[in-house]
Nucleic acid binder design. Structure first.
Lengths: 157, 157
DNA sequence: AATCAATAGATAGCTATGTATCAAATAGCG
DNA sequence: CGCTATTTGATACATAGCTATCTATTGATT
């Protein structure tokens, strides 16, 4: 009949579900501002990267592939929040810049992200969060996908 | 270039990233069998639900919305792995059944899932996994109620 | 200098997820 | 009985992820 799943058997499914729920919650809260996860995440990373970051660097920071970022940037550019500039030093690259119009949007993003975190972590200890994060990082390592942020430090290969 | 985000700020991004990596690993391993996550996950739940489960029940178990399941079932049905039957008792509903052709596929799925788990959890203690799972459960609870699939799993303990 | 390999970004096509909406069937209420 | 609300599954459309492939540019080798 129905066989119960142990902790490890449940893990993958639960992980996928929580990731989807989290995304949906953010989408719901930021929808009135015309923002979805891919957009706000891109803006947030952009605001925290050094100026004149290239699309490739930004894609690594966000954790998506090039083509995915291209479409996200297309939208953000159409909305007037960012702009792409061709650099003289290497005309293949385009640096991505926040426009002034993005400032209030970023404020809203920061506030919303903080509110969601407050809701999500209210009953969890720092130790639990840290342990869970460590588990996630180790899993990422096993899956050949070292988080992009860490690979940026390496810079070789 | 380092990430100026603390543990909790990183959490959502890391969660989404690991969920995507996990899915990609499964996709890679099962691709030669014409299976993607949505398909094998659906088959797996179907094999663990009581016979004559309706599409609605199956969607809740898998953790997706109706339209998503409809399309997954369309493919599985086209591949001859499942069949939909209209029930006389309520002609709105359709019960979903595994066909005999699905048996070897399910065997393959179970074996692959076990192999992936072995790879992923090899360096993690049971305590860490349990803590992480507990965190995920609490987050799921905060985010719009307990996921239905989990309630089903919990019920048969 | 010319040629070939590598890199950055863009495009196309696939899969998959979601919301909104629809038709059909059922259930409930007057 | 007849009207309305609810439920079930299907469809349409939008967002977003991926790989494969294309163009332009750069770099390296001969």
């Amino acid at each position: 009949m129905t066989k119960p799943l142990d902790d490890k058997e449940q893990f993958g499914l639960r992980l996928g579900l929580v990731a989807r729920l989290w995304r949906a919650e953010i989408d719901r809260r930021l929808a009135t501002f015309g923002l979805t996860e891919s957009r706000w995440l891109t803006l947030l990373h952009l605001s925290r990267l050094p100026q004149a970051a290239t699309q490739r660097e930004l894609a690594e920071a966000v954790g998506v592939r090039g083509p995915t970022l291209v479409r996200t940037l297309d939208r953000l550019e159409a909305e007037g929040l960012i702009e792409r500039r061709t650099e003289a030093s290497d005309r293949r690259t385009k640096s991505v810049h926040l426009r002034a119009e993005a400032a209030p949007v970023l404020e809203r993003i920061e506030a919303t992200a903080a509110a969601v975190r407050a809701q999500i972590f209210s009953d969890l200890s720092q130790a639990e969060v840290t342990t869970c994060l460590k588990v996630l990082e180790q899993i990422a390592g096993k899956l050949g996908g070292t988080p992009r942020a860490m690979r940026l430090a390496d810079e070789d290969r």
